[in-house]
Design a binder for these strands. Structure first.
Lengths: 152, 152
DNA sequence: ATTTTATATATTGCGCACAATCTAATTGTG
DNA sequence: CACAATTAGATTGTGCGCAATATATAAAAT
């Protein structure tokens, strides 16, 4: 049968902050899935659209810096958004290395539909706006410290 | 050039709790990577080992319930751990549907090496133990509310 | 006891993430 | 100017994560 070991607090799953973050991320993803299905977007695609709805016609690099993603992830993702008719990818004339990402009319129009999404999330999380903002700020601060610790 | 739009607070990337969780998760993963390389484990594999170090010789289902993962994720992951010599997969005699996962001697021994990992994480996160525990509790509560909201 | 229903795991396919590598374009240096 | 070093993006390969499906076993229902 299953055998239990002497617990070492530092190695216990339920004591890991990382696992709380990891499992909360998956839970968010599962809540987003039905909401985003109506927009025919995956969650990372939704994030890319959020960036573009804030600032249109930007190089891939800028999107990557906002989302902490590299071209290995973004290139195929953006190709799918282009195939879906939401964006257009055109090479920059000033710097031919850059690929500029611009919303199509359809991509801009999708923003209206997307306004329903945050409501659904707020309801599912059963948090006050203040609680959500506090957690968000703590997590962003943690993320920035973790990212700062990488190049050591 | 890049064009900025009228901001809608609910659709701004930096206001999303989900993105804070998502990006913190990736940051954790990047910090874990060099630490886990010494154990030749990926982060999800490390989580599975944490479960097994707490309770050995358990069916796949139990691991899945702890980690919120299904057989589509766990079956190939556990096969890789088996190929690495860390676990053994044997069919249960009482219930032939179940696959029991047991640590090998090598898998048990890896626990000693793993004790160094949480130290590195604590250092990189630059949090006090109390701050980490508070965030963890908030996130676990959020995760449980999100998971509870799924079957609606 | 037979049939139905539920459960445990495996398999397939798709979309991330990310390391490693490649190409092409730009910038920096002598 | 020539050439080295950097930068932007694309490509390849591996490992998740999950939906959908398949298969085999067990439990429940009639």
């Amino acid at each position: 049968m299953a055998k239990k070991s002497i617990p070492n607090p530092l190695l216990q799953l339920d004591n890991q902050l990382c696992f709380a973050v990891y499992s909360a991320g998956h839970a968010f993803n599962r809540v987003y899935k039905p909401l985003l299905e109506r927009l025919k977007l995956t969650y990372p695609q939704y994030l890319a659209m959020l960036v573009l709805w804030e600032q249109d016609n930007v190089p891939v690099k800028d999107i990557g810096e906002r989302l902490f993603l590299d071209s290995g992830t973004l290139t195929p993702l953006l190709k799918r958004l282009e195939a879906a008719g939401l964006i257009k990818r055109t090479r920059s004339v000033e710097d031919e290395r850059q690929m500029l990402i611009a919303l199509t009319a359809q991509g801009q129009a999708l923003r209206e539909k997307a306004k329903a999404v945050p409501q659904g999330i707020l309801a599912a999380s059963a948090c006050t706006v203040g609680e959500m903002a506090a957690m968000k700020n703590d997590l962003v601060a943690l993320r920035d410290r973790l990212n700062a610790a990488i190049g050591d």
